[in-house]
Design a binder for these strands. Structure first.
Lengths: 197, 197
DNA sequence: GTTTTTGTTGATTGATCAGTCAATAAAAAA
DNA sequence: TTTTTTATTGACTGATCAATCAACAAAAAC
């Protein structure tokens, strides 16, 4: 069976399997055997390609982050106004692709693990910084600095909170509701007061 | 050493130790031995008083929930106006006692575990419902039903989100900042429009 | 003063898993 | 064709831990 050039395929399959497994179990307490089994290979092979379990988990998280970032870049490119930039960032976080229960469960599990793992904590910090700067790119032109800062923090917290809530009760709130909540928050902000405050 | 009437003391000590241990590890991957050790007893005794590990974890979570609820009741009793009720609920969630890193880490860990455990999920649902109804008791007199509903959801999500963010980077945002964020959200709501919308 | 109840532990068991390794086999390079 | 590289696994090891249990001790009940 062994053909050459399997490495990238196997790695991808293992990462996908990891997300799936974590999503179903709802935690990082997934065995290498289960992940490997899902990917159709032996656990030894998973170790062969990733080394330790932690490395596989880190690679998985890095993958999620990369995907999210790619989506965000795309969405931001299409935005024409500052407000549209903010909406775009929000929309991406609740898009079909990102707001799926497996993905969310994985995020949540990684958040928890980050309290233990230096490496994961670093990755999450990168994510947090990117989210913040993406939000600020839309908010800064619309609000005085301090208020823009606060709005960015609020939206970020709102996103995290809605993710958690979604992870818990299965399916609620759905993506549309989540977006509506954040948009309602935006609608109440005193936008366009940058100079005046 | 064995005196009589140890049961309640041991149980309390074990629950405290559990919170401490989870808070430090940042996850529920804490051994019975470590918990027991912290409480100054053997792991066998922990099993003696709580049965399985899951039971101890459940009892711990129930304890956190009870404490939070007691605090909320007290705070609500002091509130005079609807808006004060909302602020009181928010304040309790970010109070010195609740917004401590161990407590928060424990909450977060329980959130994750709830995806696996039926029992924990049930407990969290109780918490969610109580929070919601507490918030609504203040919001309902101030906003049209749909908007009050949405505001309650938003505040609840904000609280969860701020908890998560606090758990991750150690200490940020602090309690005062967290409260300020939520209060700023409240300040922008079109309160007092109950009849008009 | 014997018996029962309550408190407590050390030692042990059994299961689970991450990680290793030697062995196998196909493909590619020599 | 031989050798090396890449892909792959089954079997094993070692560590960790939840859970059990027999045994001991102090207090309370009898």
């Amino acid at each position: 069976m062994p053909k050459v050039g399997m490495q990238p395929l196997r790695r991808k399959a293992l990462i996908d399997a990891t997300i799936l497994a974590i999503g179903e179990r709802g935690s990082l307490d997934v065995t290498m055997s289960e992940i490997a089994g899902r990917a159709g290979v032996s656990s030894a092979l998973a170790h062969h390609y990733f080394g330790a379990k932690d490395d596989l988990l880190e690679a998985t998280m890095r993958y999620l982050l990369t995907e999210l970032n790619a989506d965000a870049r795309l969405a931001l490119r299409a935005a024409q106004t500052p407000l549209q930039r903010v909406s775009a960032v929000v929309a991406v976080n609740f898009s079909e692709k990102q707001f799926r229960s497996e993905t969310i469960a994985a995020w949540l599990a990684f958040y928890v693990e980050a309290q233990k793992s230096q490496a994961l904590r670093r990755l999450l910090r990168v994510y947090a910084r990117r989210l913040h700067s993406n939000l600020m790119s839309g908010l800064a032109p619309l609000l005085p600095p301090a208020q823009a800062e606060r709005a960015a923090e609020t939206i970020a917290a709102l996103i995290d909170g809605l993710y958690i809530r979604r992870a818990l009760r299965d399916g609620l709130p759905d993506a549309a509701t989540a977006v509506a909540l954040v948009e309602a928050y935006l609608a109440n902000l005193p936008l366009g007061t940058k100079g005046r405050a």
